[in-house]
Amino acid sequence: MSSSPVGRPTRGTTGVNRLRRIDRWIARHPVLRRTDDPLVVDLGFGASAVTPLELLSRLRRQRPDAEVLGLEIDPDRVARAGEQAAGVAGVSFARGGFEVPVPGGRRPAVIRAMNVLRQYDEEDVAGAWAQMCDRLQPGGILVEGTCDEIGRVATWVEVGADAVALSLTVSLRLAELDSPAIAAERLPKALIHRNVEGERVHAFLASLDREWTRAAALAPFGAVHRWRTAMQALDDAGWPLVRRERWRLGEVGVAWDAVAPA
């Protein structure tokens, strides 16, 4: 185990069900279904064992043999989480950062790093991605992003084991949603300063907001129907959408090349 974790301590904020959208997305991802070693790392899990334990519970609905390793730089957080999760099989905790130390030389299928890079500069992102992805299994993924305090607005980047970004996902609670442009406030660090005229992510969010507005007449049929109609319009307009089966959940995924910094 590393004696000098790479990175800075997170703010430690966490909350029950805050990362539920990301958990369920990971649990249904093909990489978790096909791997022979379903180890998932929760990097920067925060001030308690809440998010690693919730992640384990949701993963095991799809992979009963899934395991979760929670990593934190702060040793007090690691000790506290271990006490809180005492007796729970399949979850463990250790001190670590972007170097992702895993006992026994195992490599995770998935590394989740939510609300970790928001405190860094944009130019730090590529290096952090590369360091984390270097620890993945072949074909594994890094899931890195940001969400609001109660998990109703979330965005994340899927990054392959070669440290090349694959997609951006926007996930929103549709009930009482006024504008999907609210996602701009929670974009991952690689994109949050790029939501300006002339940038691809700005064009995508503008199109998303426009199609949601155009579908307003369908609101009486329910927010999900309105959302799916808006997503179909985005697809028809040529946006390279991915994982379309998740539209019903208030999510939309788009290929990274369509939103990457210009």
Rank of each mutant, 00 (worst) to 15 (best):
P180F: 01
G250W: 00
S171D: 05
G222C: 06
A130I: 15
A66D: 01
A109W: 04
W129T: 01
A89H: 14
R210Q: 13
A109G: 03
L241K: 00
A154E: 07
G105T: 10
F45P: 01
R152K: 14
V252M: 09
A27F: 00
A233Y: 03
R228W: 02
W247R: 08
R80S: 07
R228C: 09
L53M: 10
G97F: 00
L19T: 09
V242H: 01
S167N: 08
P108D: 07
E72F: 01
V102E: 08
D134P: 03
E144W: 12
G90S: 03
A175W: 05
R34V: 15
L53R: 08
G104K: 06
P108F: 04
P220K: 02
A109R: 03
G198P: 02
A81H: 09
R152F: 07
R135A: 05
D121R: 14
A86N: 13
R173D: 08
V110F: 07
L234P: 00
W239D: 02
R18N: 10
V78C: 00
D235V: 09
V50L: 07
A163R: 08
R194E: 13
R152T: 10
A216V: 10
D148T: 06
S171R: 04
V164L: 11
E122D: 10
E72Y: 02
S171P: 07
R243D: 15
S4C: 12
A190I: 07
L191I: 06
D23V: 11
V157T: 15
N17P: 07
E211I: 07
D257E: 13
G7E: 04
E185R: 15
D65A: 05
V259E: 04
R106S: 04
A206L: 13
G44C: 09
A66G: 02
A94M: 12
G145S: 09
R60F: 11
Q131Y: 06
E245L: 12
W239R: 06
A262R: 15
E245K: 12
G70H: 08
E211F: 04
A255W: 00
G46Q: 00
P220E: 02
H193R: 15
V40A: 05
L218P: 00
L249I: 09
E197T: 15
E185D: 15
V201Y: 05
A262V: 15
V91F: 04
A128G: 04
V40H: 03
R95H: 00
R77M: 09
L39R: 03
R214V: 14
A262D: 13
L71D: 03
W156G: 00
R135D: 04
A237C: 03
L177A: 02
D257V: 12
L208G: 01
A216G: 13
E67H: 11
A154M: 13
V254R: 01
A126N: 12
A184R: 14
F45S: 04
A181N: 11
R60D: 10
A89D: 14
I150F: 05
L117G: 06
A260V: 09
W25S: 05
G139N: 02
A163C: 10
D209E: 15
L208Y: 04
R194I: 07
